[in-house]
Write a protein that binds this DNA or RNA. Structure first.
Lengths: 333, 333
DNA sequence: AAGGTCTTTGGGAGCGCTCCCACAAAGAGT
DNA sequence: ACTCTTTGTGGGAGCGCTCCCAAAGACCTT
């Protein structure tokens, strides 16, 4: 039952440890004959290198962590999560790295997690949907742990590398579409303003509305369906004449639609609605929700690729990647 | 920048390596004085044990893998996934184990994954929603890797340990509720019959229908919304007089509802609908979907706990855990 | 006071690997 | 023929930890 070691392979192949190691790590300076002998021995013995032993000497664990911290614990429920993790997974398997899922709910678990991540247990860290000025990325980078964020962090010119959607352009395009429909009382249900996504999607709305001289009607939510409902109720109370809504997330748009319907407004006749995410739920909504598509799987892939490049110490021309978004027209607007 | 080693801590505390190791691992035979000195040194140096070094000698990695294989890659989209992983995460952090997410899309990645998992890189494996007679759990156990399944595997009396919902009882209860409503043409949209869940939920339906002498009207789906739509269409064509539907998953129930509405049937007046999952979407459906609740987070926790127990070599009286399900009555039935 | 037991301690050995140095073998140049 | 490379190879050292053994103390007994 005991797994064979490098030494066993060497003995079997009639070579030294060094040669076996070279074959395994693809060193060029190995004779064809030796390589074949080693490969056969590996095959016969079913040899699998011991990661721990390798990690001990190389000081690399070939492992990266995807951190899901307390406030974003519900990411699992969110439509974008599946795509992102899929992208991360596919990019990572290609490079042979392992993905560990690090979760932290309480504050003390958070501290423990930071301790763990900085304690040479992972080669790099992937951080999803950061809120506010979370100190984690700064601490990690300070300890020499490469970190890549998913979504622009708030604050001016942070030094972190990240992958993000072009949220601003997407929002702008959505609102311009509403404008093109002849709507004149366009409201926005914005996301949390302590997140880059939240800020950027609202900026996009403003970009489109400002030049027209039309009023800015804004309510805030936290991307959840419930918050979309209350924001819509608020909007409806303050501006009964609203004729279009741009919601910064699909769940919020869905919540808004529910409230609008309950208030007797026809969609899109009375009020046009556009969401953001291009989630599955948007497609199945009634009426199907016009929304802004964002390439989630690509984002995951890019995050992983960026991280791998940084782990390998490559000089990055571009530590930031921005992915295109575009409007998907359906029936709600 | 170099992280301190055990030896550094020992030197600082004025004790030997052995004593530091004992303190870290909570050995009882350490004097109070030594323990304090060591703890302070650890604090001052910010010492974090090197996992690789420890793993090398203990032959334990303190890591378990959650395998998400090709066919179930969409689990990320499924409502039950979030709860399960949450439960796994919370149970695991308590025990200090790390969770690695192992994904395999293609067949060859699958082979590589098996190689990896059996190659002493993880202490145990968690397998979600197995299809058919997947050879993976058998291979893993044969190689001495403890494995716990989420959901009963098909086939009579497999030797694996697993955690499952009482799917049969839940389904039976749902159908009995339909019967209690006076419905007499109750159809089932069953899940894949190569999965325990699929089989059991259909059995529950039969348990309730059989004694009544009413006809069994069954169509099959794969738990997805789309499959629910086509199954419902099929059912409607074959049995236009159907007055109730029990779907083996919420997405299928939602798909069925869409088709029913399109066919002009009122829910629940013309056709009552019950789903299974108690997902968030069920709550927000129109009308709110009556469904069978299953404790997903508890399932995740139990899976993790079972695995940990097996890893620690505990003698298990009960290598199988079945969790209760119950009907949640809303407006669709 | 001497011998016993139990607790606590330090440190050698060794886990399986990579790194690197020394050296052998094979060409290449004079 | 001889040196000087170049290429390929074996194996010592050591990564940071746990295990375990021998020895030192502490505390009883008689």
């Amino acid at each position: 039952m005991n797994r064979p070691t490098l030494e066993a392979v060497a003995a079997r192949a009639g070579v030294g440890r060094g040669t076996v190691s070279r074959v395994i790590n693809g060193s060029p300076n190995v004779s064809e004959k030796a390589r074949e002998a080693v490969q056969q021995a590996i095959q016969e013995l079913g040899y699998v290198p011991n990661r721990a032993a390798r990690a001990l000497v190389t000081r690399r664990t070939d492992t990266v962590a995807l951190v899901v911290s307390e406030s974003e614990f519900r990411v699992f429920d969110e439509p974008y999560f599946a795509g992102t993790i899929r992208g991360i997974g596919s990019a990572l398997t290609e490079t042979g790295l392992q993905l560990i899922l690090a979760m932290a709910r309480s504050r003390q678990e958070h501290a423990r997690l930071e301790h763990y991540l900085t304690g040479q247990h992972v080669d790099g860290v992937l951080l999803l949907s950061l809120h506010g000025d979370d100190p984690l990325p700064g601490r990690l980078e300070a300890m020499g742990v490469p970190t890549v964020l998913g979504g622009r962090p708030v604050g001016p010119a942070t030094p972190y590398s990240y992958v993000d959607m072009d949220n601003r352009a997407g929002a702008r395009q959505a609102v311009k579409h509403l404008l093109g429909l002849g709507r004149g009382r366009i409201a926005a249900i914005a996301g949390p303003q302590d997140m880059g996504v939240g800020v950027d999607r609202l900026s996009g709305y403003r970009d489109a509305v400002l030049p027209t001289g039309l009023p800015e009607l804004v309510a805030y939510g936290d991307f959840s369906e419930e918050s979309g409902e209350s924001a819509m109720a608020e909007l409806l109370a303050a501006h009964p004449d609203v004729d279009a809504v741009f919601a910064a997330s699909d769940p919020m748009a869905l919540g808004a639609m529910r409230v609008l319907k309950a208030a007797g407004r026809a969609i899109p006749e009375d009020v046009a609605v556009i969401g953001f995410d291009d989630s599955k739920a948007a497609l199945h909504a009634d009426p199907p929700l016009t929304t802004v598509h964002q390439p989630m799987e690509a984002m995951g892939r890019q995050m992983a690729l960026l991280l791998v490049a940084r782990i390998n110490g490559e000089e990055l021309r571009q530590p930031v990647v921005i992915l295109d978004t575009h409007l998907v027209r359906r029936e709600s607007a």
